[in-house]
């Protein structure tokens, strides 16, 4: 884990609420493909990987040693289909602990999703883990 990344703010990237991706997500869940029921966790940090905010690469996390520790969502306003949002990812905290079989690193990354006028509609925090 690149400990020096703590506090780093990625350049904002843009995501759009796409129906086609939401349909795949619903199929993956085993749910009926009804866009009215797409879980509000549809927006997810992973969308940044091809849009300039590849957290694994930036934090130096090798995928074979990576675990996903958790997620937090805070919803402020609904997101409409085809709406474009600006997303700013911030590496809030990186900690190192000694586990039973080696070191473990924890990184909390916050992603703030905002409309063009600056209104924040969503905050997502993802907790990434790397095992030694």
């Amino acid at each position: 884990m690149n400990m020096e990344r703590q506090g780093y703010v990625y350049p904002p990237f843009t995501v759009r609420a796409e129906r086609a991706l939401a349909e795949k997500l619903l199929r993956g869940q085993g749910a009926a493909v009804d866009l009215e029921t797409v879980p509000p966790t549809y927006m997810i940090f992973l969308r940044g990987e091809t849009r300039g905010a590849n957290l694994f690469e930036g934090l130096g996390i090798h995928r074979k040693r990576a675990l996903h520790g958790g997620q937090r969502y805070e919803w402020y306003e609904p997101i409409a289909w085809d709406e474009e949002l600006s997303v700013t990812a911030t590496v809030e905290k990186i900690t190192e602990k000694q586990g039973r079989s080696g070191k473990i690193w924890f990184a909390d990354v916050a992603l703030d999703y905002a409309r063009a006028d600056g209104t924040r509609v969503l905050r997502e925090i993802t907790r990434l883990i790397e095992r030694e």
């Binding site: 993956g28 997810i44 992973l46 995928r63």
Partner: peptide
């Protein structure tokens, strides 16, 4: 979920993790 569903979920969330 079977493997096909896992692949759909990865596609739907744009998750490249193999």
């Amino acid at each position: 979920a079977d493997r096909a569903r896992l692949a759909d979920f990865s596609a739907g969330t744009e998750d490249p993790n193999p």
